[in-house]
Amino acid sequence: MFLISWLGIQLAAGSDVRSGRAVAGWLSAASGYVAGGVVKTAVVIEADKGWHTYWSNPGESGIPTEMTFDLPDGWKVVETGAPPPMRFEASGLASFGYAGRTYFPVTLQAPQGAAGKVVLKASLTWLACDDGGCVPGDAELSLELADGAAEATEHRAEIERALERLPVADHGFGLEVVDRGSTLEIRLEWVGGGGPVVDPVDCEVFPVSAERIRSAEVPRFRKVADGWVAEVAKSDYLSGAVPDLRLLLVDRKRGKSVSVGWRADRAE
């Protein structure tokens, strides 16, 4: 199995698990840990060719990939992240998710006073679909880390790349939403210093918030005098005024993505 070659023979690796038309594994950038320090890791899922897994907002069908952690006393998950998704059609339904190999970075922190070899555990569930059908998958993953020997593993570079690809939150953008009944007018304004890391005109836009805008809609921002604006149809499942909205702007050209949010109860 290909994951065996990723995971190698180092301590900082667990066994790969095959389930639900995908293979899952857990990689670490370092072979060990230092008490009180952080360890960069990534859970990796590789869907079989022609199959896909789903983002946190799966779109019109599917369910999100979920992971939970079982860590030794004092260990903490500092941050988990998901890379920008892709848009695809599954049985004619607009869906958001991943094909091929996908890295979900997980940053861990060892407690002060931690000592000895540790075994970290994670449970993972996902749904993989192709046009013919869907299969649920699950995996119990583990990662062994040595005490003190924080040397880089062969996975360090790929984990660093995965971290760089993660969306950043509210990176200097202000978002405003005007509810126009069946549609939403979405306005973006640059309020940060320097310049934006993404150009909204070039961005693929994904709804982080489910059931706010129609998944089949492909929002596109256009430049206006004081920022950028897009009009989108409201979700068929949203009754009443839109209470909040969070969007992910993915600028593939620049390799950056930004998450921006708005709440009606905080709007001026």
Binding site: S61, I63, S91, D131, G132, S235, Y237, S239
Partner: peptide, 10 residues
């Protein structure tokens, strides 16, 4: 009217 979950109709 609410969002049903499941596999896309084939």
């Amino acid at each position: 009217k609410n969002k049903p979950y499941g596999c896309g109709v084939k």
